[in-house]
Simulated assay, not measured.
Amino acid sequence: MEMVLVEKSFLEKVEYLVQQNEQILTFLTTKEKPEKVTQWVSMKELQEITGWGRSTLETWRDQERFNYKRNSEKGKILYDLESVNNFLEKTNNKRS
């Protein structure tokens, strides 16, 4: 038996894709519009995805340019990836 170690962020992305596929399957079989699934990412992931630095992203967050939530566990802030991407596209601030 072979054991493979993966990062937690990878597992979260796989979980998100599985949720998306389940929603598509539900829509195709029932013709009901699926609920939007929000992909929440950490600051570190957001920096990697957008190419922007922590202070810039925190400034935009504090200006409420995109959606975020505070995770009740440990007070960690998570960011709505789609909301961030929409903001960056509207303002031509896309880096990556």
Score class of each variant (00 low, 15 high):
K94T: 03
Q20V: 07
K94S: 08
Q39C: 05
R65S: 09
T50C: 13
G53M: 06
N21E: 11
V4S: 06
Y68H: 15
K69T: 00
Y79M: 11
E12I: 05
L11C: 09
N92F: 04
R54M: 09
L81W: 15
V14N: 09
Y68G: 02
S72D: 03
E22N: 09
M1R: 08
N92L: 14
L46Y: 08
N71D: 07
E35C: 00
F87L: 02
G53W: 04
Q47S: 01
K31S: 09
E45A: 14
V37E: 09
Q47T: 03
G75D: 04
W40M: 04
E15D: 14
E89Q: 12
K36R: 15
D80F: 06
Q39N: 12
V41A: 13
I24V: 15
N21W: 05
L81F: 14
V41G: 04
L46K: 09
K90M: 15
Q19L: 06
N92Y: 11
E32T: 13
Q39H: 13
L11R: 12
S72F: 05
L46I: 08
E48S: 15
E64C: 06
Q19F: 11
L17M: 09
T91Q: 15
E64K: 15
E2D: 09
K44F: 13
S9Y: 10
S55C: 07
W60A: 12
N86M: 09
K33G: 07
E58K: 06
G53F: 05
L11A: 12
Y68L: 04
R61T: 10
L78I: 03
T59Y: 15
T50S: 14
N67W: 03
K90I: 03
I77Y: 12
S72P: 00
K36E: 15
F66Y: 12
T50I: 12
W40F: 07
L46Q: 10
R70P: 00
V41Q: 11
D62C: 03
T59M: 14
Q63V: 00
F10A: 08
S9M: 08
V14G: 11
F27D: 02
E12A: 10
V6W: 08
T38F: 01
V4N: 03
K69I: 00
F66V: 01
K33D: 14
K94V: 06
N67F: 00
V41I: 15
W52Q: 14
K74S: 05
V37F: 08
L28G: 07
S96H: 13
I24T: 14
L28S: 07
Q23V: 04
E35Y: 11
Q39S: 03
Y68D: 02
Q63A: 03
K76F: 04
E64T: 09
R70Y: 01
K36Q: 12
M3C: 06
E12C: 07
P34Q: 00
E58A: 03
E64Q: 13
L25P: 02
Q47Y: 01
F10Y: 10
N93F: 08
V84W: 05
I77E: 02
M1Y: 11
E15F: 11
G51M: 15
E22I: 13
D62F: 05
L46D: 12
E82V: 02
E32D: 12
T91F: 14
K76G: 01
D62M: 07
Q23C: 11
V84Q: 05
M3L: 13
E89K: 06
Y68S: 14
S83I: 02
G75C: 05
V41K: 05
I77C: 04
N85H: 12
T38D: 02
K13D: 09
L5K: 11
